[in-house]
Design a protein around this nucleic acid. Structure first.
Lengths: 259, 259
DNA sequence: TCCAATAAATCCATATTATGGAAGTAATTA
DNA sequence: TAATTACTTCCATAATATGGATTTATTGGA
């Protein structure tokens, strides 16, 4: 079985980047990189050299250890909000965080993952699955992520689920059932208690394109005590309102990220 | 003259990323990418396909246009503060912004550039050279950037200047003279009025590693009216204090970014 | 709506480029 | 200081990227 990608070297280079990204902040040694990516050491060396030249990798201090360079930060900042989603949603997040007093997250879809694009903390800070801006979670794990998954068209949903099942299980979590996802679509929101993170309640509403594709979700994270079922109804209603507002902004921008 | 990089395909792929990053948010067409990067179209096609598969590029809406994908944002967020610089400096920035009422920036070196790692606005928002977090400017253009350049060891400084001279001129700005840089080192800060951005005063102090390498700078941006010479002295003094505090934090973390 | 023009995707023989074994050099560690 | 481990460089080889040619899709104009 030959992998006829046509761009082996590039793919290997990207694999190196991802390996380094997954490594602790002390960085990675060349040998580790080679091993992790299944490369011979001279090959890894050449790829690393090229990435370093471009600023994609840097040496840690004056050691030989490698970590991600700031070039990725530069590019990431450019790419993060090319569609204007984060900018469009920020006011909504701020209002929601202020009104609810809880943590609000903006999650956007990226392939088989949901990425935390923005976060607003009100009074306190909770630990969430993705944790920080830039964090990612497989679609189907975490409220925002699962909401996006649930609203995907049938075929795509199945494909994503198939791809993510093992990843989610490997992380020690349950894969949402068909019924779960159907319920989310019907109610228009996802509600999780004690599922992805212990003691934490999460809920999320989708942000859809005019064509009905889910591109993102607004999620809330709170402790169980702070978000009982009674309060949930109100909060969700407000979140839905805000989501609709964001959708309107996206729809009115001609080059929005209508996926 | 042969470019014996040993990783042509990877370098070309990265060039594609950078080309797309530089493009407007509507995205780029395959042909444009090919032309911009000096590639044949089938070659560009293969590279783009690989990058798209990895989430480094995405299609805009349902068109064929390409823009940066969120994978870069993910990686960037990971790499942005692996050294802990931004985290270490944030409190300082917040205090400085609150105390001065102006805009404070954290600029870090990345190769021949300075990248805006963080920004704190107090009462108002000014237009800065880099503009936003993630923005970059050649070393030698802008107060924070120039401060870092000035504090580099002689040989490195010359190398950077040689590399950046044309870039800075191309942007319609002046290249700092040897005397300018020497003065910055002597005074321990950089002060610019009306230089990089019209009507704006900028000033910056360096953040040095224990070994005496400049890795970053704290910069202030304000309107001319708000930051007269008289006030400048006090503000700079406070900035220097905070910079020293950040240096202390960095020095005490064993895997800091001592470059 | 149709047609022309332009762009994107696919194919494939070729030569360039990446590859990885081997060997030398530098950095750790005992 | 010696022994071990990691990094760098070299180069013949083979696998891979390349780009010309072609087909297919998309876009824009009438």
């Amino acid at each position: 079985m030959k992998k006829q990608s046509g761009a082996q070297a590039l793919e290997r280079g990207l694999a190196v980047l991802e390996a380094v990204a997954a490594a602790p902040p002390e960085g990675m040694r060349l040998t580790e990189i080679a091993e992790t990516c299944g490369l011979e050491q001279p090959t890894a060396h050449r790829l690393v050299a090229a990435l370093e030249r471009g600023g994609y990798l840097t040496r840690v201090g004056d050691t030989k250890r490698l970590r991600l360079g700031l070039k990725l930060f530069q590019l990431g900042a450019t790419g993060a909000d090319a569609g204007g989603l984060a900018a469009a949603a920020r006011p909504a997040l701020v209002r929601l965080a202020a009104a609810s007093g809880d943590c609000m997250f903006l999650m956007a879809r990226s392939g088989f993952d949901a990425v935390c694009l923005d976060r607003q903390d009100a009074n306190y800070t909770i630990r969430s699955l993705t944790g920080h801006v830039g964090g990612a979670t497989p679609l189907g794990l975490g409220p925002g992520s699962t909401t996006i998954l649930a609203h995907l068209p049938e075929a795509e949903r199945a494909e994503v689920l198939a791809a993510n099942r093992d990843r989610i299980l490997a992380l020690g979590h349950d894969v949402p059932s068909k019924a779960d996802l159907a319920a989310i679509c019907k109610r228009g929101f996802c509600h999780e208690v004690n599922r992805s993170v212990a003691g934490i309640v999460g809920a999320a509403v989708p942000i859809m394109t005019p064509k009905g594709h889910p591109i993102a979700a607004i999620a809330i994270g709170a402790t169980e005590a702070r978000l009982p079922e009674t309060r949930l109804i109100d909060v969700i209603a407000t979140m839905k309102e805000e989501a609709r507002r964001v959708e309107a902004i996206i729809a009115s921008s001609r080059d929005g990220l209508l996926s």
